[in-house]
C-alpha cells in the first residue's frame, strides 16, 4: 500500500546489546497508531531505522514499499520529528524550514503556509534558540508537514508539553489521520495514548508484545461488575445462577465475575430485587500496559524498599 509502514524482522544490535529484536509489524493509513514501550524498549531506535538514520543489523523497514534512503525528495512522502531540539538555534524559524524545503524542491510560499498551520507565523523571523519547547515542537511538526506527506512519524511528541500543547498535537494528529494519512507516534505514557490513538503497538526489550486496538484492549481486560443492593444474599443466588462467581466486599457490596452488567440488571429486575448501583470495572489501560511491559521493562524501581 502506498503510505504503509512495514517492518520485517527488523533487528539492531549494539555490541552485546540487542536493542531491537526481530520486530515485524505494519502501520496502516487512516488511523493514529501509537508505538508504546517503557524507556529503553527500542522505540526510538526502531523509528531511526525506519528513517534511515540508523542501519539495521538485519531485517528491513519499508515506507510505501521502499527503504527511506531510496526515496528522492522524501519530505513529499514522509514527515518526521524525532527530536524537537534538532534545529540550529542561530537560524530563524523561517530559514530553518527554508533550508529543508530547498533541499526537496519545496517553495518558500509553502514554508509560510506550514508556519501559519502550526501557529508560528508571528515568530517566523525569530531565532529558534529563543523558542520554548512547545514552539520547537510546533516548528518540528511544521517541518514534517512541509512536503504534505502521506506518512507522519513523531517520536515522543508530547514530552514536556503543557496541556494546551498536548491538546493541539492530539487534534492535529487526529486531523492528519482523518485525511487518510498514516500517523505513527511513540510514547512511554499509556494514559496519553489512550486518548490519542486508535491502534497500539506495544514493545518491550525490542520485541513486539501486542498489536491491537485501544478499544479491544479495554474490552479484553474488563474485569468485574460491582453491584450494590439492600438484598445481597438473594441477589447473590440470582447472579450465581447466571454462571458467575460472586464475592462480597467489606461494605456488603457484591463483586461479580464472568457476567456483564446488563445481565445482572435484567436478572435482578425479573427477581424483583432492588439494585442501587451497577458498575462495570475494567483495568485501566495504564494497568494493562504496565502488566504487559512489566517483564520487558529494563529498569523497574522496587516500591517495597521505599515504603519501608
Amino acid at each position: 500500500m502506498e503510505h504503509m509502514i512495514e517492518l520485517v524482522e527488523l533487528t539492531k544490535r549494539y555490541g552485546s546489546t540487542l536493542a531491537v529484536d526481530g520486530l515485524s509489524f505494519e502501520v496502516r493509513p487512516g488511523v493514529v497508531t501509537g508505538f508504546l514501550g517503557p524507556n529503553g524498549a527500542g522505540k526510538s531506535t526502531t523509528m531511526r531505522m525506519m528513517l534511515g538514520l540508523h542501519r539495521p543489523t538485519s531485517g528491513r523497514a519499508l515506507v510505501g514499499g521502499r527503504r527511506y534512503d531510496e526515496i528522492r525528495h522524501p519530505l513529499h512522502e514522509v514527515g518526521a520529528v524525532l527530536d524537537a531540539d534538532a534545529a540550529h538555534p542561530g537560524r530563524t524559524a523561517f530559514v530553518h524550514l527554508a533550508c529543508l524545503a530547498r533541499s526537496n524542491g519545496i517553495s518558500r510560499a509553502r514554508v509560510h503556509t506550514v508556519l501559519e498551520q502550526v501557529g508560528l507565523s508571528n515568530v517566523a523571523d525569530k531565532r529558534v534558540g529563543g523558542f520554548s519547547l512547545g514552539m520547537r515542537q510546533r516548528l518540528g511538526i511544521a517541518g514534517a508537514l512541509l512536503g504534505d506527506p502521506g506518512v507522519v512519524i513523531l517520536d515522543e511528541p508530547v514530552n514536556g508539553l503543557d496541556a494546551a500543547g498536548i491538546r493541539w498535537i492530539r487534534s492535529t494528529l487526529r486531523a492528519l489521520a482523518a485525511q487518510g494519512r498514516t500517523v505513527l507516534l511513540s510514547s512511554h505514557l499509556m494514559s496519553e495514548m489512550a486518548v490519542t490513538v486508535d491502534r497500539v503497538l506495544i514493545i518491550g526489550k525490542g520485541r513486539l508484545i501486542e498489536d491491537t486496538s485501544v478499544a479491544e484492549m479495554r474490552d479484553r481486560f474488563e474485569r468485574d461488575v460491582l453491584v450494590r443492593t439492600p438484598r445481597a444474599a438473594a441477589l447473590t443466588t440470582v447472579i450465581t445462577r447466571l454462571g458467575a462467581t460472586v464475592t462480597t466486599t467489606g461494605d456488603g457490596d457484591l463483586i461479580a465475575v464472568g457476567v456483564d452488567a446488563p445481565a445482572i440488571g435484567d436478572a435482578a429486575a425479573a427477581a424483583g430485587i432492588p439494585v442501587h448501583g451497577l458498575t462495570p470495572r475494567s483495568a485501566t489501560l495504564e494497568d494493562v500496559y504496565l502488566q504487559m511491559t512489566d517483564e520487558a521493562a529494563e529498569y523497574r524501581a522496587s516500591t517495597e524498599g521505599i515504603a519501608r
Binding site: 538514520l53 524525532l82 534545529a87 540550529h88 529543508l100 533541499s103
Partner: peptide, 19 residues
C-alpha cells in the same frame, strides 16, 4: 560540524537521506 553540534544533522538527513 555545526549540524552535528546542534543535532540539525537529523532533519538534514531526513530531507536528504542519500548520504
Amino acid at each position: 560540524t555545526s549540524e552535528f553540534g546542534t543535532r540539525s544533522i537529523g532533519p538534514s538527513l531526513l530531507a536528504v537521506p542519500q548520504r
